[in-house]
């Protein structure tokens, strides 16, 4: 089995509103797969169907070779999930949450304590591990939930906005753990995220979803390459004159002035910087600085969805 998750026209309708619209997803085994989309795009709904919490309105899906509707128990045995919304019990301690989860997922007794200790070290709860969850900060709760999702080494791990609201160090350590887990264990990760950096760093493949539909999917590298848009940012002594003349250059696809900086959208920027500099001196404009930027995932996202991902948050 090549793809550990596969969907065929999976659709979820709430009355006549379609939250997920004929999605065909193929997630290769042992990959880290990202789903990017603005608020309300249908990410959580999609994940909920894959982990048997919601029945699809139509279409079908398989996880680890099992149909999510016909064989939910087998699917549940194969997966771990960190929900977007909180799912903790205030009056249990962090350690107890891990113990309970390990027991419910059948982690062999002799492995449990070791795993729990490893996870507690990762999520760095310190002394708090043995205090009630109601005394935790938001970030600690999140770390606990992520640790819990990892403890039974699931075949597929679903992470719905795993690091939202965490501080940079914690995020970094969780990324490292996910990377190591993915490298050393037979585990596939499907995650949604609002952090471009996270998707870029962790994901082998990214799908961009908007209004319930997958618009495109590929590796972050290819997505950026396909955009064919490097940005050359210039500051000059006479921006108006420069822009007026540069409009006619045919290698410039687009030109903006943002906060007195000139941004030129071009293809294959590294070959063009010298040409731009020569052109400027020819028309008698002094260049103060030049900078070349390759597109980031955010640009890809803006191109496909027409909005910035962090927009309304």
């Amino acid at each position: 089995m090549e793809n550990i998750i596969e969907t065929w026209d999976i659709t979820k309708k709430y009355d006549d509103f379609t939250a997920v619209d004929s999605v065909n997803l193929q997630v290769p085994r042992n990959s880290v797969y990202g789903v990017l989309g603005p608020n309300g795009a249908g990410k959580t709904t999609l994940i909920s169907m894959l982990c048997t919490i919601l029945h699809p309105s139509s279409g079908k899906a398989q996880v680890n070779g099992y149909d999510v509707v016909k064989n939910p128990t087998e699917v549940r045995k194969s997966i771990g999930i960190v929900f977007q919304s909180r799912a903790l019990d205030d009056i249990l301690t962090g350690r107890e949450h891990l113990e309970m989860h390990a027991a419910l997922y059948g982690v062999p007794k002799e492995l449990r304590n070791q795993r729990i200790d490893d996870i507690l070290e990762l999520i760095a709860l310190g002394k708090k591990a043995d205090e009630y969850v109601k005394t935790y900060s938001g970030g600690m709760k999140r770390r606990l939930e992520i640790g819990r999702g990892l403890i039974h080494y699931p075949k597929v791990l679903f992470l719905d906005e795993p690091t939202l609201g965490l501080d940079p160090q914690t995020r970094e350590s969780i990324w490292n753990y996910i990377e190591n887990l993915n490298k050393n264990e037979d585990i596939t990760v499907l995650m949604t995220t609002h952090y471009m950096e996270e998707a870029d760093k962790l994901c082998d493949e990214v799908a961009i979803i908007n209004s319930g539909q997958i618009i495109t999917s590929d590796s972050p590298r290819n997505l950026k390459r396909k955009l064919k848009a490097d940005t050359i940012t210039l500051t000059v002594d006479d921006p108006e004159k420069f822009v007026e003349n540069a409009k006619n250059l045919d290698f410039i696809k687009d030109i903006f002035v943002v906060d007195s900086e000139i941004k030129l959208m071009v293809e294959m920027g590294e070959n063009l910087v010298t040409e731009v500099v020569e052109f400027a001196s020819k028309i008698g404009v002094q260049i103060q600085s030049v900078e070349l930027e390759h597109p980031n995932l955010e640009d890809v996202f803006i191109k496909y969805t027409g909005s910035r991902i962090q927009g309304e948050k």
């Binding site: 982990c51 048997t52 549940r76 799912a87 019990d89």
Partner: peptide
Amino acid sequence: YGFLKEILVAPI
């Protein structure tokens, strides 16, 4: 509190 989801999604 969402805790029921955690229990119901377990293979039990």
